[in-house]
């Protein structure tokens, strides 16, 4: 089947169309309940709160496409960012130095994951559960447990840098400058996933590890590179988190990994590997952030946040599971028809 029905094309390869639909419904409902929702300041604040989750989600997306699950990325993120801030101190190091330092730390921690997972072929969830406790333990026991308010100057300055300021309703709505690097990262990851041999090898490995191996993909190397890259992405996300919240707290981020995984899965990535897209992931992150940020706008108390995210996640994966069931039944039906025809 080369020509797809227009409806199927709208639905997208990974149900992106469905996510867009849900997102639109949520936006319309929220707007009806409270027109304030569509104001620039609210939209910009949703974008702002989506920045760090998007960067982290890109890493999770790549891992999930390869058929794994990583829960250590938040530990890596805060480890890299906090240790960078601690080592550099409040003095003046350039933004580039900070970024490189954090990325090196992130890459080193990601490499640990990659080596253990790829060479020993261990279950990714359990390995990363183990490494995440280790990373967090080492961070707090040996690097620092204190809240740091004096950030390096370059970070403090970036924390208040806006790319766009629009006056709305008496106050100024600011769009943070980090939208640009985050968008660039999204494009980069999309390009890598769809246009490089390494990116395609992730899909191949996630679809069927044995087939990928026999097809000649260097799967061990690909996995080591993957987890190192995820470490680097996590470090970037952690640095952005520290910059945006204008302080470094070693207890931050860890605990939010399941929200990020939920966003990626809602965005159509298959937990079994082999499927997933950057577009779907970004939509999934937006969906979760809108729900978390805006429940209060429509009059639902914030204590409902966690339950709402859980319900949305169950709904999303439930619909996916049911439609997968239906497709497999359809395949059997086709097979039966062919038998009859023959």
């Amino acid at each position: 089947m080369t020509t797809r029905k227009p409806l199927a094309r709208l639905k997208g390869g990974n149900n992106e169309g469905v996510v867009v639909l849900v997102l639109l419904v949520v936006v319309v409902l929220m707007t009806v309940a409270n027109p304030e929702f569509l104001s620039f300041s609210n939209l910009f604040s949703i974008v702002r709160s989506s920045l760090v989750p998007t960067v982290l989600a890109l890493g999770v997306l790549m891992v999930i496409i390869s058929g794994g699950i990583d829960v250590s990325f938040t530990a890596i993120a805060i480890f890299a960012a906090y240790s960078t801030v601690t080592w550099v101190g409040p003095g003046g190091a350039g933004a580039v130095v900070l970024l490189v330092l954090a990325c090196v730390v992130g890459a080193a921690l990601g490499l640990v994951n990659g080596l253990v997972i790829s060479t020993l072929r261990l279950p990714t969830l359990i390995v990363t559960l183990g490494t995440s406790t280790m990373f967090k333990g080492v961070l707090i026991a040996y690097i620092g447990a204190q809240y740091i308010a004096d950030l390096p100057e370059a970070m403090a300055r970036l924390g208040n840098a806006n790319v766009l300021s629009i006056p709305s309703g008496g106050e100024v709505a600011n769009l943070h400058v980090f939208v640009i690097p985050v968008a660039a990262l999204c494009v980069l990851v999309w390009w890598v996933l769809s246009h490089t041999m390494w990116g395609r090898s992730l899909y191949a490995y996630g679809g069927d590890p044995e087939a990928a191996r026999r097809a000649g993909f260097p799967v061990v190397r690909a996995q080591i590179i993957l987890y190192t890259a995820v470490g680097v992405l996590a470090a970037v996300g952690g640095l952005m988190h520290v910059t945006l919240s204008r302080n470094a707290n070693p207890q931050d981020l860890v605990g939010s990994e399941l929200d990020i995984i939920a966003a990626v899965v809602l965005g159509g990535a298959s937990i079994f590997g082999g499927r997933g897209s950057v577009l779907g992931t970004v939509l999934g992150v937006f969906l979760i952030q809108i729900i978390q940020n805006s429940l209060i706008l429509v009059g639902i108390p914030s204590v409902w946040q966690r339950a709402a995210v859980g319900a949305i996640l169950l709904l999303g994966v439930g619909v996916q599971a049911l439609s997968a069931k239906r497709t497999s039944r359809k395949v059997f039906a086709y097979a039966d028809e062919e038998v009859v025809a023959a």
């Binding site: 399941l258 995984i261 319900a311 439930g318 049911l322």
Partner: peptide
Amino acid sequence: VGITPILATLGTMQLFNGLAIV
């Protein structure tokens, strides 16, 4: 429903915990 155990229990963990918070 046929949801993978890890996702189903991840969701119910959030849901039960969320309801407890509520």
